[in-house]
């Protein structure tokens, strides 16, 4: 399968934080959910992909092109929602409608207007009068109105109520119907990713600790809840992490079908992405 985005051995050093050997790919037609706690390195990775930060080592290819050598060509075909950067808030959606067609040759004014109406975003009100959810919707509409092939979205659903989140997710799902496109979606709201992501990449303290197909992850990983005595029987190679609670142990196992064959455990709970994140970050080995 052809990759639309390839990140290989990305390293970036700050005084108090480092991205270490970040590698992952997004094939065409796929949505990659990028998860991790605050400060884990999601936004830094996205900034490197977008050339917002430049001094790093490693290789990033978008549409098969080096992202630093071909940024103009690449930028024309990507749509971006950043966590906290956008047009100045004294501008209006109508101002954006005048500016963007001169920036993107493929800007689709009719599509932009259609989504503005669909999301009830007023044309002539300054962005500063918008609620957080309205701003986010405007950022998303602006990101997709030039028919990009790759969407890079940093927390695009934060601040949205459940109804709006569903509307936005529907847009992303429509977008991905064209199998030439792909989405990199960083989010804290992992339930959204459970709905739409094909792959999950999990970053913690600047390192990728897991990158897998979502279905593999949710079908194979599980949580064993057991006593201390039962836990002490488990070989370290058979589980990934555990959390010791007041009365029991929660143990993350990577193969919930095989685990009961080795140990007398009857119930293994399905895992959610939230639980996975918590155990991977807080758990011990």
């Amino acid at each position: 399968m052809e990759n639309i985005l390839e990140v290989k051995n990305l390293n970036k050093q700050y005084n108090d934080f480092a991205l270490q050997d970040i590698s992952f790919n997004i094939p065409k037609g796929m949505i990659m959910g990028f998860i991790g706690e605050n400060g884990a390195g999601k936004t830094t990775t996205i900034k490197a992909i977008l050339n917002i930060i430049k001094k790093y080592t490693g290789e990033i290819k978008i549409f098969g092109l080096d992202n630093r050598q071909n940024s103009a060509q690449i930028n024309a075909e990507i749509g971006v929602v950043l966590d906290d950067s956008f047009f100045p808030e004294i501008m209006t959606p109508a101002d954006i409608a005048k500016s963007m067609p001169k920036i993107y040759p493929t800007w689709d004014s009719a599509l932009y207007q259609k989504y503005l109406q669909e999301f009830s975003l007023p044309q002539n009100k300054q962005i500063k009068t918008f609620s957080k959810g309205m701003r986010k919707k405007l950022e998303i509409v602006t990101a997709i109105a030039h028919h990009p092939k790759l969407l890079i979205l940093d927390e695009p659903t934060s601040g949205l109520d459940p109804v709006a989140r569903r509307e936005v997710i529907d847009i992303f799902q429509n977008f991905i119907q064209n199998e030439e496109c792909a989405i990199l979606l960083s989010s804290h709201i992992t339930t959204d990713l459970e709905h739409i992501a094909d792959y999950i990449t999990f970053i913690n303290k600047g390192k990728i600790i897991l990158s897998s197909s979502k279905d593999d992850l949710l079908n194979n990983y599980g949580i064993v809840k057991c006593t201390e005595k039962e836990f002490n029987q488990f070989a370290k190679t058979d589980y990934l992490k555990y959390v010791k609670n007041k009365y029991d142990y929660e143990v993350l196992v990577p193969n919930k079908k095989e685990f009961p064959k080795k140990y007398p455990i009857k119930v293994i709970d399905k895992i959610t992405l939230d639980e996975l994140m918590i155990i991977m970050i807080k758990g011990e080995k």
């Binding site: 900034k47 977008l50 050339n51 917002i52 103009a72 930028n75 024309a76 990507i78 971006v80 950043l82 906290d84 950067s85 956008f86 047009f87 100045p88 808030e89 004294i90 920036i103 993107y104 890079i152």
Partner: peptide
């Protein structure tokens, strides 16, 4: 205009647009 750009971190967003750093 610089002040508004800075407040809304426009410069980072501009980098993601075609030839944004230069233009």
């Amino acid at each position: 205009t610089f002040s508004y750009d800075s407040y809304n971190k426009w410069d980072a967003y501009a980098v993601t647009l075609p030839n944004g750093r230069k233009n």
